[in-house]
Structures are given as C-alpha cells and as structure tokens.
Write a protein that binds this DNA or RNA. Structure first.
Length: 805
RNA sequence: GGGAGCAUAGCUCAGUUGGCUAGAGCACUUGCCUUACAAGCAAGGUGUCGUAGGUUCGAGUCCUACUGUUCCCACCA
C-alpha cells in the first residue's frame, strides 16, 4: 500500500541508501550480457558543481538507465579530474597564497586535502541526484593508478616519436606563469587603442607611420613589414627605420601577410606580439628579443621600464612618446583578444623548451576519425572538424606548475640527453628518484629532473584507457575498448573529445568510443551562459533539490532536444512537481484495484483496454526510437503525454467498471485490471529513468509483491501485450473525443460532471465499436440512454437530471 | 571573415522520412468539492509557422537568397 502523500524528503534519501547498499547499479564483470560502456567525463575539481553540470550529466545518466533496462551490462564509472592548474588555482584562492610561496611538498599536500573535501561534496551531490554510476568504479586523475597510466601514455608516445621536447614558441599565461595549449584559449572582446607612431627613416627627416596596440613591445622590435604590393611604401624596402624611444635601427622587409587596410598598412614585428610574429620569426630567422618575463614584467631590454607590468609600461611609454613628439594620434578600437580560459589573462607567446604532442602532422587522420564517430546530434561534428582544420600548434603538454602528473623524465647534466623512466618503475616522480642507469649517450650519472608537470588534459584524455585497465588487464581492456559512448557538453569537444581521439589513435590506432553525445548549455535569461559568477541561489543545485526534489530537477534536465542550449526556466520545475504528484496519485488509485491481483495471460480484453495497451505500445516504440537517437527529452515528452492521457481519459473511462464488478461483471473488471497493471508497470519503468526515487517508492509498495525484482531499476522494459493497431487507436480516440464533447456540454451548462444525462445522441461511422464500449461511455458521462446516428463524429445531449441534494 | 544552431500562440517549447482544419504546457477565462489527486478535474479563445522566391498534386517540414539571434573558429599590427 502506498502512503497518502509522497514525501520526497525522506523517500529520496531512503532509496539512495538502498541502491548503494544493494549495489543496484553495479557493473557485473562476469555477466554474459553485452556491455554498454560510458566514458563519463570526470568533472574538474575547481569549486562548485553548477546547474550546467547537473544538466549535462543527467542526460548521460538517462542513457545508462535506459541501456540497463534494455538488456545491457552497463559500465558506468564516475571520476574526478583533480590534478593540474584548475586545482592549483582553487587551492591558491582558498588558502589565500601563491603556490611558489610554500614548498612543493607542502603545496601538494594542501591540494590533496582540498581535492578530497570537494570530491566528497561532488559525490554527495551526484548521489543525491540519484545518479546511477557504479561508485566502485570511481577514479581520480591524480591517483597513483592514473599517474601510472598517464606516464605510460607519455612513454608510449615518446617511443613512437609522437611527443617531442623542443624550444618553440608556446602560448604563455603570465598570471599563471605557465605554458598553455591552444585549446585553453578563449577570445574576449577588449577595448584597446591604436597608437600611431613615428618611425624615422635612416638618414632622413621623414618618418613612416605605424599603428600599434602594444607600444610596450617597441624594445623587442625586430623589423617592420610592408606588403610587397604597397606602392606608397615600396620605396622603403631595403632601408632602415629608427625605433621610437629606443633609437635602434631595424630593417624594412616585405611580406604578403601584411594587410594594406589595417592600421597604416605598415606593421612592426616584435618577438612576440602575436602568432604572425612567430611565423615571421621562423621564416626570416629573426633575432629573439624577450621584452616580458614569465610573470608579465618588463625585462632588461625595456630599459627604464624594466620591472613594470606590461600595462604600466604601456601607459608610461605612451606618455614618453607624447613628450618626444613621436605619437601622432590615438584611435580607440575594440578587438578580440585571446585570453587564458582559467583566469582571463591576455595570452603572450614565449620561446621556451616545452614538451609537445604532435597533432598538426595528422590532421587528415583526425578528420577521418571524426567521421568514423557517430555524433549525437550530428551537427556537433562540425565543431570538431572546425577545430581540427584550424589547429595552429602542436599540443603543448608541459606546465610550469606543481600539482599534477610529473614527466617520467630526467636530463643528463653533462650532455643534456633525455633519459626516460623504465615502464616497470612507473609511476615515478623524477624530483625524488633517479634513473637506474647512467646516461646512455655519455655515460655520466648526474641528472637534472624535469620539474614541469603535465597538462591536466594529458591525463583526462586517457580516461577510456584508465577505466578499461589498459596495460593492467588486457582481457578487460579488449572487452571494453572502444567504449560505447562519450557524453559531454559542447564546450569540451576541442579538448576532451579531440585529445582523447589523438591518444587512442597513437596508442592503439582505434577510436576511443563508438558514439558521442553532446549536450547543450544552460543559459540565463537573455541567452547568457550561467557561469560561476552568475550562478545564484535560484539555480543552485542543492537548493533546487531541496525545493523541488531530485526527481523534479532530473525531470527538468530532460527538457529540450539534444545539443541545444536551453534557458533556465523555473516553470519546468513546477510542471515536474505536478507530474510526480500525479504519478503517485494515479498509482495509488490503480492499486486500489490491484491488491491481490495476479495478471492472467488469457484475459479477455474489452475494447478500451485493448486501446490503451495498443496506444501504450505505440508510445513505447516512439520512446525507444528517441532513445536510440539519444533524444532523452523527446522520449520523455512521448511518455508524459501518454501518461496524462492514461489518467484523464482511460482511468476515467474504466473506473466505474473497476468499482462495480457487481454491475458490469467480473470479466469487465479483470480486463481493466490487466490493462492497468501492465500499462502502469511499463510507464513506471520508463519514468524510472527520469524519476528514479518516486518510481522506486511506488514499485516497492505495489508491483514488487508480484514482480519480485529487488528494484524497479533492475527490471527490463517489456513490450506491452498488444499490437499497434492504428484503427483501434483511432476509434478509441473518437470515443475520447465524444466524451470530451459531452463534458463540454456539462461545463457550458454549468453542471457538475456527475450530472446524469437523460439521453445522448452520438453520430459516428463506428457504431459497432461504440456499441461494444457503451458501458464505459455511459459510466463516464452518466448518460442513461445512448442513441446512434450515422455520420461524421458528433454528439448532442437531450436533457439532464439535476438530483436534489 | 569562415562555420553551425535557432526563428511556430503572450511565455517555454513539440511537430519523425513532405500528407487531413498546425499541437502541448504555462498564463488567461469560465465552470466543477467527481468514492486517486483542489498541488485536482472539465471546457474555452489565441497563430502572415522570421521575410522573399523556388520544387511539388500538396511545404511549418525540402531547395535558394535575405533578416534577426546564439554559439564555435579565425582575426590581436
């Protein structure tokens, strides 16, 4: 028996504990069922989980549940990405210190503690959302196993020549004081100023005008460029010009990349102002002049500006240019600049020795792999393709940071030879251990450890390998790889998806997964992203769970279609609450008539009972079709509208039969019981995907006594016992239509719905069918007599009886 | 500048490979305490399907162009 009211506050916790204790969602290693594996992205441990995470993770979770209920042994691990820059930034913020102010050991310890604290919070939140991951399969990218896998991955690439150590221009964040990768850039619109400067021509009183937004780089100027087709400036070619304030001379060169209509059509080249400068640097073998140090301050070559932050230097230099009559004019502009996604700092370019993974040389392969993958929705593939086609640099994986996976690398102090660790010694920390052999090149035995750590993505990009026990359990690896599905939001296609494809290809020449499912973003009202800075109590996951229940929050995450951004709209939560309330009440009601009922296969069905089964079967098919396309929201729409139809039309039609077997016969009751039993059971299973708590509560108190399965979530979806009979469905709908018209008559006449009608005249072309269901129609409309006419569907009412109270 | 998504009722959105008179919920109006649910039920009005062409017997759906909007990428002199 069900309680009178459903109390989510106690029930949700109760069932969450039950599932954990019973291992309801555990992966069965020995099962014979086909495996469906999900490569769940481990969330970055950098603070709070916001509603966007909940949205994206729930969508994938629905798939896990669906597959579990359709014959698969679901492998659904949940991990945490807890190493690298994001964690360091979090710890620095929390502790109010900078990593370099404490020892490396001490900082690492702080990181580990912080990570543990946050992960507990993350895990609790996902559990309280009813997430059905198998928590026994949890993993951490900073764990020893992950570090080992990550270092193995590095060594494998090293042996295959896919990773190299070189001095090459790399993107640099002066705030985080580390190299970063192209994928970690974000563009931001910024206000800036074009400063038109005078570059005097050697041995002349003439000058050439050059517009620059970065006058602080004057000291790093190597040359100036004109376009070879620039007739106005072509006579400058071969001459030298004097760099303002610094008064050294640089040559005038020409290059096609110079745009005639930008600025003055003449550009200064500094090492490095932007990506074009790095290309010119290589092409013309220019001199390296470093104006900005690792932390964003001016260097020696800046002269009097040394030690100033770049912005301060810029202001000073502009003052000085004005004073020396070298500044012609200033024009304000807005332009898109690349900033570091983690901190918003404008990106610089630095020439330093870094480790790179080759990505540029295999563009064609990345495109091929992208095409082999099945993308849900398909249009998201173009984001991947766009990214691959526009790749400019190899993937820089070394970070000048502290908390992360170390490179298993030393350098010979004598000859500089790179010494890598033996695979059997992994994981290693080169800072605390030494190579086991002398330098293979020069035989010396003094080494300098690599103190950099790896990009966090270098580890995250092998989650399929980590979870499938690559190099640990070969049989298991073969069973799981490639994984079936990678679900993630569209913002990390260029990182997670791309890098994982790169690694799997280099390691094993396979795709890491067969399919990817890309979910959208949650937007605040005006179509703005809900970022951490914009999240508030109104959309805080915990508050929402408290206010509406986890089931309702889950319901909300199933709105919309896959891949599309949706606007956060609280209305959906209210609709979800209504749905759960209705589901509970409908179940309670139906079970008034199902206590001690045992469904019989040979039950003879009345037409409307056949109708609801057939209509339900039709809905099931659509539901499954949508799930096959990963359209979890559209699948739920089908189920939901069927359910309301079941309540408002079907239950109303048969309730009199259920109440009164003495009048309508035991057969009529049994027929309705049969249809109710199966329809409700199947609906509960399907709703269970979205609303696991309330459906479990209902199941445990009702169907379990008959069905015996320990949890509704361990059951299989089964076809309703009926064919899809389109004719029958149509006829049944005509009955509903007639009933609705009769209700309309009562409403118009301000009558109660139970008012008895003297006579109802139904016009239909399906008189025979109406004859069969006459009891139901009479019961639901309180009509005492029904007369039939042949023609298009219509109904008239001939009088009513108002009973005295 | 290149690419992608979206544009349907006041709001949020469905509308499958083209096929009856374009749907749902919310909101709004009116009524109903009906032996599950008043957090309920019933009934009701609401549309140049962004614009302009095209294909077709037939277009919200396919094609072309345009407009608006969001996102991705490039552009940092």
């Amino acid at each position: 028996m069900l309680e009178k009211k459903y109390d989510y506050k106690t029930c949700e916790k109760k069932w969450q504990d039950f599932w954990q204790e019973n291992g309801t969602y555990n992966f069965d290693k020995d099962s014979k069922k086909p495996i469906y594996s999900i490569d769940t992205p481990p969330p970055t441990v950098n603070g709070k989980i916001h509603i966007g995470h909940i949205f994206s993770y729930s969508q994938a979770e629905f798939i896990a549940r669906f597959k579990r209920m359709t014959g698969y042994n679901v492998f659904y691990p949940f991990g945490f990405d807890d190493n690298g820059l994001p964690t360091e930034l979090l710890v620095e913020k929390e502790k109010g210190l900078k990593a370099y102010t404490v020892s490396r050991e001490e900082f690492t310890k702080m990181c580990m503690e912080t990570v543990e604290k946050y992960e507990k919070g993350f895990k609790d939140l996902f559990i309280s959302m009813g997430n059905s991951a198998d928590w026994n399969l949890s993993y951490h990218t900073v764990s020893s196993d992950s570090q080992k896998a990550s270092q193995e991955s590095f060594l494998d690439l090293y042996k295959k020549g896919k990773v190299y150590y070189a001095e090459a221009p790399a993107l640099w964040c002066t705030k985080c004081s580390t190299a970063i990768a192209q994928s970690e850039l974000e563009s931001e619109e910024k206000e800036s100023t074009f400063n038109y400067l005078k570059f005097f021509i050697e041995d002349s009183n003439d000058y050439v005008e050059i517009a620059t937004t970065r006058p602080e780089l004057l000291c790093a100027c190597d040359c100036i460029f004109i376009n070879p087709k620039d007739e106005k400036h072509i006579n400058l070619l071969g001459k030298k010009v004097k760099v303002p304030l610094y008064n050294f001379y640089v040559p005038v060169l020409s290059d096609d990349k110079v745009e005639l209509d930008k600025g003055t059509g003449v550009v200064m080249c500094c090492t490095f102002g932007d990506q074009t400068d790095t290309q010119w640097f290589k092409k013309y073998k220019l001199e390296l002049k470093v104006a900005i140090d690792d932390t964003g301050r001016m260097t020696d070559i800046a002269g009097k500006y040394k030690g100033l932050k770049t912005r301060e230097a810029r202001t000073q230099i502009i003052e000085d240019l004005k004073e020396n009559d070298l500044l012609i004019k200033q024009v304000p502009i807005t332009h898109q600049v690349s900033v570091h996604e983690r901190c918003g700092t404008e990106m610089e370019i630095k020439l330093k020795k870094q480790w790179f993974i080759k990505t540029l040389e295999n563009k064609q392969e990345w495109i091929k792999k992208g095409n082999e993958l099945i993308w849900h929705p398909n249009f998201m593939k173009s984001r991947y393709m766009d990214w691959v086609e526009n790749l400019m640099m190899d993937w820089c994986i070394s970070r000048q940071k502290y908390f992360g996976v170390p490179f298993p690398v030393w350098y010979c102090k004598h000859c500089g030879e790179i010494i890598v660790a033996d695979e059997k010694d992994l994981p290693v920390n080169p800072l605390t251990s030494m190579p086991k052999h002398n330098c293979s090149k020069c035989g010396h035995n003094e080494f300098i450890p690599e103190s950099d750590i790896m990009d966090t993505w270098a580890t995250s990009s092998i989650t399929p390998q980590i979870n499938s026990k690559w190099n640990i359990d070969n049989e298991f690896y073969k069973k799981l790889m490639p994984m079936t599905l990678r679900p993630n939001a569209h913002d990390i296609i260029r990182t997670w998806d791309f890098y994982t494809i790169v690694k799997s290809f280099y390691h094993s020449n396979i795709l890491p997964w067969k399919e990817v499912m890309i979910s959208g973003f949650i937007m605040a009202s005006q179509g703005q992203k809900i970022s951490k800075s914009k999240s508030n109590a109104k959309n805080d996951p915990l508050d929402l769970i408290n206010t509406y229940s986890a089931d309702v929050v889950r319901y909300w995450t199933a709105t919309g279609s896959l891949g599309r951004d949706i606007i956060f709209n609280e209305e959906k939560f209210k609709i979800g609450s209504r749905l759960t309330n209705k589901l509970f009440n409908a179940s309670k009601f139906v079970w008034l008539f199902l206590e001690n009922y045992q469904p019989k296969k040979d039950t003879k069905l009345k037409p409307m009972d056949k109708w609801i089964l057939s209509k339900g079967r039709e809905m099931q098919k659509k539901f499954i079709d949508y799930f096959d396309k990963y359209e979890v929201g559209l699948a739920m729409n089908e189920l939901e509208s069927f359910f309301w139809n079941f309540c408002d039309n079907y239950i109303e039609l048969v309730k009199v039969r259920l109440y009164n077997p003495d009048i309508y016969g035991e057969d009529a009751k049994e027929s309705a019981q049969y249809a109710c039993y199966y329809t409700l059971l199947e609906m509960l299973k399907m709703f269970g995907i979205y609303l696991p708590h309330i459906t479990e509560e209902i199941y445990q108190n009702t169907f379990k006594s008959v069905e015996k399965s320990s949890s509704i979530h361990n059951m299989q979806l089964t076809d309703l016992p009926s064919e899809i009979d389109k004719e029958l469905i149509k006829k049944g709908e005509e009955v509903c239509d007639i009933v609705s018209q009769i209700r309309g008559y009562k409403t118009e006449n301000k009558l109660s719905l139970k008012t008895k009608l003297k006579k109802v005249i139904i016009t239909t072309k399906n008189k025979a069918f109406f004859n069969e269901v006459e009891d139901d129609v009479k019961a639901v409309t309180s009509a005492q007599e029904i007369e039939y006419l042949d023609g298009e569907t219509n109904v008239t009412v001939d009088g009513f009886i108002v009973e005295e109270k």
